[in-house]
Computed example of a mutant assay.
Amino acid sequence: MPRPRKWRKVCCLPENKRFGPLNASIKQESFIAMTVDEYETIRLIDLEGLIQEECADKMNIARTTVQRIYNDARKKLAESLVNGKALMIEGGDYKLCDGDEKTCGSGSCRKHRCGRGLREEAKKTDANQKEDDH
């Protein structure tokens, strides 16, 4: 019996789940399926600039697992770009983080960053209201 898969921690779901060429009709069979955890490795490594070990810590998985997921994701991106196929992000073995964990504080967690930004805006609004009251 195979070992059960470990859940990968993901900051938040992508805002857009479908990407593809604008000049072609997209058929369902021409989609390339990328999992949410593959998307998260691309986001953390390529966009946030983390190394694979840091990415592994954020996602609560082994570095070798991150390496495999990242390689699979890059291959799917390349196939989509080169062959003009649409990319659809869905599924995978993941759990969404709540943004309150200790590992979420470095700035690469979008949920934590958004929450912090909202709290900072609320503080500014409160300060402005106090100044207006005086």
Rank of each mutant, 00 (worst) to 15 (best):
K95T: 10
G105T: 12
E40D: 06
K85P: 01
S80R: 01
S80P: 04
G107Y: 05
R43D: 11
S108F: 04
C104I: 00
K95F: 06
M88Q: 14
A73N: 01
V66D: 02
E40V: 09
K95V: 13
L50T: 15
G99M: 04
L44T: 12
I51G: 11
H112A: 14
R110E: 01
A86M: 08
N60L: 11
L87T: 11
C104Q: 01
G49L: 09
I61P: 03
S80F: 01
I42E: 07
M59Y: 04
E90T: 14
C104K: 01
L77F: 10
I45A: 15
Q52I: 06
Y94F: 14
K75G: 03
L44N: 05
G84L: 06
M59D: 02
T65K: 02
K76S: 09
Y70Q: 12
I45M: 12
T103I: 10
K85V: 07
N71V: 04
E101C: 09
G99D: 07
R110D: 00
K75P: 01
I69P: 02
S80V: 02
N71P: 03
T65C: 05
C109P: 00
C109T: 01
D57S: 14
M59H: 05
G105Q: 11
K76D: 09
I45G: 02
S108W: 07
I89N: 05
R43C: 02
R63N: 09
R113M: 08
C97W: 02
R113N: 05
N71E: 13
D93V: 10
I61T: 06
I89H: 02
K95D: 09
A86H: 06
R74M: 14
I61Y: 05
C55P: 00
R74D: 02
I42S: 04
V66C: 10
L96D: 03
E48K: 15
M59A: 03
E101D: 13
G105A: 10
G92I: 07
N60K: 12
V82E: 13
L77R: 09
L87S: 12
D100M: 08
C55F: 06
D93L: 03
L50E: 04
A62G: 12
G99V: 04
H112V: 00
I69R: 02
T64S: 14
R74N: 13
D93E: 10
G92E: 01
T64I: 06
C55G: 15
C55R: 02
S108Q: 07
K111V: 04
V66G: 04
I51Q: 03
I42D: 04
K102W: 06
R74S: 08
I89A: 10
L96R: 08
L81E: 11
K76E: 06
R43N: 13
H112D: 06
D72G: 08
I69N: 06
E90L: 11
K75D: 11
G91D: 08
K85Y: 11
E101P: 00
L47D: 13
G84Q: 11
E79G: 00
L77D: 03
D46W: 04
C97M: 06
Y70W: 14
K76T: 10
G99I: 00
L81P: 00
N83Y: 14
I61D: 01
G105L: 10
Y94Q: 01
Q52Y: 15
M59T: 01
G91I: 10
E40K: 09
K58D: 15
